[in-house]
Amino acid sequence: MATRNIGQHDFAEVVQAEGMVLVDFWAAWCGPCRAFGPTFEKASEANPDIVFAKVDTEAEQELSAGLNITSIPTLMLFRDGILLYSQAGALPAAQLDELIEGAKKLDMDDVRRQIAEAEQKAAEKAE
C-alpha cells in the first residue's frame, strides 16, 4: 500500500481505526524528512496491512501544533486507536522494521488492561 496524505479533516478517523497506522510528520524543506521518505515508502510497500500516512506540517500547522510536533520528521505509531510510539527523528530502515514487528507482536488486550489500570490509579490519586 502506498502512503496517503492526511490532515486535520481526517487525522482522528484514520488513527482511531482498527489496525496499525504509522504517521510521518514532515515538510518539503526538511532534509532529514526527504531522506526518510523513501524508507517510509518502502516500508509501506512491504506492509500492505498497515496504513502509512503523511502529514505535511507546513500545510497542517494547526494539527501539528495540537499534537505538539516541535521537530520533524516525527513518527507516530497507533494500533487500534492507541498511540504506541511517538518520537522525532528519522529511523533507519532496520529500526523502522523492528518498530513495526514489535507493534505487531503486542497483545493489545494486555495494553488496554494496562491503560485501564493506570487510569484507575490516576483517578484514585485525584480523589
Results as ranks from 00 to 15, higher is better:
53 A>Q: 00
108 M>W: 08
72 I>T: 05
36 F>Q: 01
22 L>N: 11
124 E>D: 14
32 P>N: 05
11 F>M: 01
84 L>A: 11
126 A>G: 13
127 E>Q: 12
59 A>D: 13
17 A>K: 08
51 V>K: 10
99 L>W: 02
50 I>N: 10
41 E>L: 10
94 A>T: 14
36 F>M: 11
115 I>M: 07
98 E>Q: 15
40 F>P: 15
36 F>W: 06
53 A>K: 00
53 A>F: 03
96 L>T: 07
102 G>Y: 03
26 W>N: 12
31 G>D: 05
70 T>E: 11
75 L>P: 12
96 L>F: 13
70 T>F: 07
6 I>Y: 12
20 M>A: 03
117 E>V: 06
57 T>S: 05
6 I>N: 07
33 C>F: 04
34 R>F: 04
74 T>R: 12
116 A>R: 11
80 D>H: 11
8 Q>I: 15
1 M>A: 03
67 L>M: 09
120 Q>T: 08
73 P>E: 13
3 T>Y: 13
9 H>L: 02
117 E>P: 02
37 G>H: 06
43 A>D: 07
30 C>T: 08
60 E>W: 00
49 D>W: 09
120 Q>F: 01
104 K>R: 08
107 D>F: 04
42 K>M: 09
68 N>F: 03
61 Q>A: 08
40 F>L: 12
81 G>V: 10
59 A>C: 01
36 F>K: 05
26 W>H: 02
115 I>S: 06
113 R>Q: 06
56 D>E: 00
26 W>K: 08
124 E>G: 10
106 L>M: 07
21 V>F: 10
56 D>W: 00
